[in-house]
Each structure stands twice: as structure tokens, then as C-alpha cells.
Design a protein around this nucleic acid. Structure first.
Lengths: 220, 220
DNA sequence: GCTATTTTTTAAGAATTGCTTAATATTTTA
DNA sequence: TAAAATATTAAGCAATTCTTAAAAAATAGC
């Protein structure tokens, strides 16, 4: 789990980083709002911790900017601005939680955990007769194991997690390949082909359909 | 959106119920932990508000019990137990937020809204008996799927998004085809024809009308 | 630390699908 | 009724996707 900390006071960053790394998180930090924004666009973070008062761009502006592009990554404010009005303003900007300084580190950790709780809940995904066992990293078709490589597994899992929704090629490149710039390539096609072959799916009638000009969609 | 309030002080229940109903929520309340548990199992609530000190079963026990069966419904504690230890205990029991009394009603509302934010992401447009499911990229006429190509889908969606307004040929070429110079062609006609055929629309009386000399208009 | 193996990516031709044009038919309006 | 606008159809062309093979990169074994 990768957390972005945007905070200008080095002492607080150090304290948070050390504590959260001990909890098993990977930390990246930015010392001003602009750097924070750039980082948030370049990488996929699982959660973002935000101070309010920041150089170059306030936490509030940063929060709103992030939300324009991405509505799902949890954002937690961690700030000395402690009035009810400010809290409400922060939440309205799209934050998921608002913690006032001084705060308890243990409470922060608990409040972070909330957002990761239901993530590995779906440990076994299904798509028709296909079972994806995430902890065991295995894929079964009609109870018979099929060996997939890492990327194949990730792509399939991504499609199944978004079952019923079209996944665009851009989204797939962003979320599965973690590439955040225009990238014209045929990798997706190659991997889709490999998955279909290994899982023995026919293009026309089967679980993963091509949506021409857009991407792919999984459906039982 | 249906909210369950489990709280024994009638005054608080009344205050919450009235305020939240004004916000457009449907409220059901229980005055002790046991009733709260039974209700939570009988009905599907979208969110649960929980006091800690309750007759028959404490909020903490109730929270844990609910979580044994259901991990997704958001639970918010609303309690006078205000120490860090208690907060952590509440969150560890599976709650999604922990608000201390006395609290600001406006902040409570904002914190409730957080949990409903990403719900109306699934955009479904309608035009009479036609449904356009954007995330699924599907079009249904009387619940029967009709296969449209990408351009057909975009054109139809554009017209339906501008339901009730005339879309001029120039606007359509600009917004759907992304062509920003004078362009004299019959493409639009060809696609309108294809859409009408596939959706089985009659020209004269149906949902998409031709506005001679201008463009087209959609209306239920 | 080098080699063998597996996995990922690139690239290129084949197949498919859908877009556009153009030619013709029909409808509307003056 | 003639002229203009829209509807309809079919065919060539363009773009996307599929498939395969081989190169590049990463991983594992010795």
C-alpha cells in the first residue's frame, strides 16, 4: 500500500513516514502543493495525506484538483485548521476524513486502515466458471488450474474487479501497467489474446468482450 | 438512501431524524442494541449511525455483530465516549467513522455524504423506452439490447444528453466528430439513419425528430 | 556472475469491423 | 412543380483488433 504525504514541515513528515513505514506502508512525500499534485498524477497512490497550509498551492486546492481527475483515492486532511467550518470545507472539497492536529498517531493509523479494509476482502473473484483466488494467486476454470503469468493475472483481475463496466485502454494502461502518459502500443491486445487462449474463451460469445474503439468488458 | 439510527435518548433521535429527513434521507430508528441488530439483519440499510452506550447490547458489540455478517454498510459512531482509546476501539470494531458528542450537525451530514459519494457513478440515461447504460456501454430498447457501433453510440448519447434542445449539424460535427472546420458531408444523415433503424424508430412520431434546416432533437 | 528460462514487449501481417463517400430515392417547402 | 434538404443504400477504404513471431528484459538456476 502506497501513501502520499503532502506536508511542508520536515519534522512531521519524518515522524509520519517512520511510523507508517513501521506499519508496513510505502511512503512518498512532497513538501509543497504543486509537487504533491504532480506526484499524484504521475503515480497511483492508495491513499493521500494532506496538510492544509502548504507553499505554492493550499491543501484545499490540491484536494479539489486531485478530485477533478480521480474520485476514488481516499484523501485524509491532517491539519491545524480545527474549526467546524474548515472541517466542512475540507470534506466538501472531496476529502474522506479530516483529522485535527495535534492528533494521535494510533488513531491516524486506524483511520487509514478503514480505507483499506474492504480491499482484500474479495479474495476470491469469479467470472462465470472462472475463479480467481487472489491470496493464492491462482486461476481456475471449471476447477482446473490455469497457469497465468503476473501481467496476465493482473489484467484479468482488473477486468473482473470492474465486472460489468467497460475498461478503456487508457484506464488499463494507467491502472494495470501504471503508465501515466500517452502510450501507443499493442501490449494490451497481446495479453488479452494470451488470456483468452489460456482460459479458452471464444471472442464472440464469451466472458470478456471487446468494445471496439473503447476497450474491454467482463461479464458473466 | 435509508439510514438506521440506534440511540436510546429520544431527544437525540428526534433531532437527528428531523434533520436528516430534511436532507432527503429515509430514517429508521431503534432504541436499544438488540432491536438495532434485528433491524439491521431484516432490512438493507445504506448507512448505520450508532451510539455507544445502549441498553441490552452496547454499540461496540452491535458494531462487531453487524460486521460478522456484513462488511460493506458504513457504520458511524456518534457518542460521548471521547478518549483516543475508545475511538480506536470503535474503529477497530469495524466502524467507518467516529464522531464525538457534542457534534456539529452540518459536519455529521458531510461525513455521511462521504459514504454516498461514489454511488451515483453509474450514469444511465433514458429517452422514452430507450436506456443508455454508459459504464456498460449498452443500449436497451424495452429491455432488449441493441448493438450500436462506437459512433452510433456517441451520437445517440449526445442527443440524449441534450434532450429537449435542438442539436445543430454544426454542433454535432464539432462535438461528436471533433471536426472544427466547415465540413460539408452526409455522415450525420447516414448515422441517424442507422440509429433509427436499429432502435426501430419511425421518423415522424418518434423520440428523435429532424428539425429541417437545423439539425435534430431528442425528446421522450 | 554467467547462463538458461520465463516473461514482457515490440513489431508486422491478417482479419475484421465500421466509417465515409457517393449515388439514388424520397420528402418537404416555396 | 421545381428546388432544397434529408433519407437510404451499397461499396471502397481506413482504422482497430487479432494473431504470431521474434527481440528485449527480467528472473531463476547453477
Amino acid at each position: 500500500m502506497h501513501i502520499l504525504i503532502v506536508e511542508d514541515e520536515a519534522g512531521i513528515v519524518q515522524f509520519l513516514q517512520q511510523g507508517l513505514e513501521e506499519e508496513g506502508y510505502t511512503i512518498t512525500s512532497a513538501s509543497d502543493g504543486l509537487k504533491g499534485f504532480e506526484l499524484s498524477q504521475k503515480e497511483n497512490f492508495d491513499l493521500i495525506l494532506l496538510d492544509w497550509m502548504l507553499p505554492k498551492m493550499t491543501g484545499l486546492e490540491l484536494c479539489k484538483s486531485i478530485r477533478l481527475k480521480n474520485t476514488s483515492t481516499p484523501i485524509i486532511f491532517l491539519t491545524a485548521k480545527d474549526t467546524v467550518q474548515e472541517t466542512i470545507e475540507g470534506l466538501k472539497a472531496g476529502a474522506n476524513d479530516y483529522i485535527k492536529k495535534p492528533f494521535s498517531f494510533d488513531e491516524l493509523v486506524e483511520r487509514i486502515k478503514i480505507h483499506f479494509r474492504n480491499q482484500n476482502e474479495d479474495e476470491i473473484l469469479t467470472l462465470g466458471s472462472i475463479k480467481i483466488d487472489i491470496p493464492q494467486h491462482r486461476v481456475l476454470v471449471n476447477e482446473i488450474e490455469v497457469a497465468l503469468t503476473q501481467r496476465e493475472f493482473e489484467l484479468l483481475t482488473y477486468l473482473v474487479k470492474n465486472k460489468g463496466k467497460v475498461c478503456t485502454r487508457t484506464q488499463i494502461i494507467e491502472d494495470v501497467w501504471d503508465i501515466h502518459f500517452e502510450y501507443d502500443t499493442g501490449v494490451i491486445d497481446v495479453f488479452m489474446n494470451a488470456i483468452r487462449k489460456k482460459l479458452n474463451l471464444k471472442i464472440e460469445q464469451d466472458y470478456i468482450k471487446t468494445v471496439r474503439g473503447v476497450g474491454y468488458i467482463a461479464n458473466d
